[in-house]
Deep mutational scan, measured.
Amino acid sequence: DLSALRVEEVQNVINAMQKILECPICLELIKEPVSTKCDHIFCKFCMLKLLNQKKGPSQCPLCKNDITKRSLQESTRFSQLVEELLKIICAFQLDTGLEYANSYNFAKKENNSPEHLKDEVSIIQSMGYRNRAKRLLQSEPENPSLQETSLSVQLSNLGTVRTLRTKQRIQPQRTSVYIELGSDSSEDTVNKATYCSVGDQELLQITPQGTRDEISLDSAKKAACEFSETDVTNTEHHQPSNNDLNTTEKRAAERHPEKYQGSSVSNLHVEPCGTNTHASSLQHENSSLLLTKDRMNVEKAEF
């Protein structure tokens, strides 16, 4: 173990290094160091905050020279020094078990990766560091076993998940096959086929009936047209017969005018059967003409 005197000496050296690497504005270890034209180094955030307070150039807090945003430059070497100082402080805390008085939040800088452990060898070769390295080497064999167990647990979990997924996939297939086998029997399929065939026959029977009705309507229309044509021909046949009657009536009127007047009046009210309204109107006109002729003949006879 380190003596108290040596611990104090190391602590004083760390404090001196820390004062050199402090920012003059925030009085902390410089984060993202930036250098000016006057070779003074500050935190990048502190300098941008200072420049944004005034429009135009501002003055350096140490030498009062003008500073602009374009004049600022990043210093990589200074950032490396800060990183190495942080590593020294971490090693000091691990070796002594004491917390550094002016320690900052170094938890963000710590890294437990194997590459980081290899890099620590180049920091300080001390008894405390050696003991700590031995402890780490002793704890390393235990870690692979834990990793193997965790991997086995994960693989077993994956296997159970896969088996569950396969079961879920197989179950719908089985149910679907069961439904297909038990849903419709052979008799049901035959009945469905016969039902479809009967429906098709009914459709075939319905369509000819409609065509037959249309044919019957067409035949009825044709018969009505033929009947009207026969009526017209009958009226045409009746007209010459009426003319013959008129000639006979004229002759009778010349011989017996008194008797014919009474008979002509009675004939006005008689309509021949089986004739249309057109034929009756023609008869009325003929009878009126005959009456006028008879009157003329009677007057001539009187004179």
Results as ranks from 00 to 15, higher is better:
4 A>T: 06
5 L>Q: 12
7 V>L: 08
9 E>P: 10
11 Q>N: 02
12 N>G: 02
13 V>W: 10
25 I>V: 05
25 I>C: 04
27 L>W: 11
27 L>Y: 03
27 L>E: 05
29 L>K: 08
29 L>Q: 09
30 I>Y: 10
32 E>F: 10
33 P>R: 10
33 P>M: 12
34 V>T: 05
42 F>Q: 15
44 K>P: 07
45 F>V: 07
45 F>I: 07
46 C>T: 15
47 M>G: 10
48 L>G: 09
50 L>W: 15
50 L>T: 05
51 L>R: 07
51 L>C: 12
53 Q>T: 07
54 K>L: 07
57 P>I: 08
58 S>K: 12
59 Q>E: 01
60 C>L: 15
60 C>I: 15
62 L>R: 13
63 C>K: 15
63 C>V: 15
63 C>L: 14
63 C>T: 15
69 K>I: 00
72 L>D: 12
73 Q>C: 04
77 R>H: 02
79 S>L: 11
82 V>F: 11
83 E>P: 08
84 E>D: 07
86 L>T: 04
89 I>Y: 10
89 I>W: 06
91 A>K: 14
92 F>H: 09
94 L>Q: 04
99 E>K: 07
99 E>P: 06
106 F>A: 07
107 A>V: 11
107 A>S: 02
113 S>G: 02
121 V>N: 04
123 I>S: 02
123 I>C: 04
126 S>H: 01
137 L>C: 10
139 S>E: 03
141 P>I: 04
143 N>Y: 03
144 P>T: 08
146 L>F: 01
156 S>V: 01
157 N>F: 02
157 N>D: 09
158 L>W: 01
158 L>R: 14
159 G>L: 04
161 V>P: 11
162 R>W: 00
164 L>H: 13
165 R>S: 12
165 R>I: 00
169 R>T: 04
169 R>L: 07
172 P>T: 14
182 G>V: 09
186 S>D: 04
190 V>D: 11
198 V>C: 00
201 Q>F: 01
202 E>A: 11
206 I>R: 15
207 T>L: 01
209 Q>W: 00
210 G>A: 02
211 T>M: 14
213 D>W: 00
215 I>R: 14
221 K>M: 00
227 F>C: 14
229 E>K: 11
232 V>R: 04
237 H>P: 04
241 S>G: 00
243 N>P: 07
243 N>C: 14
246 N>T: 04
248 T>I: 03
254 E>A: 01
256 H>W: 01
261 Q>Y: 01
265 V>M: 01
266 S>M: 00
268 L>Q: 02
269 H>N: 13
275 T>Q: 05
275 T>L: 15
278 H>S: 11
278 H>F: 03
295 R>C: 04
296 M>Y: 02
298 V>T: 15
301 A>L: 01
302 E>Q: 03
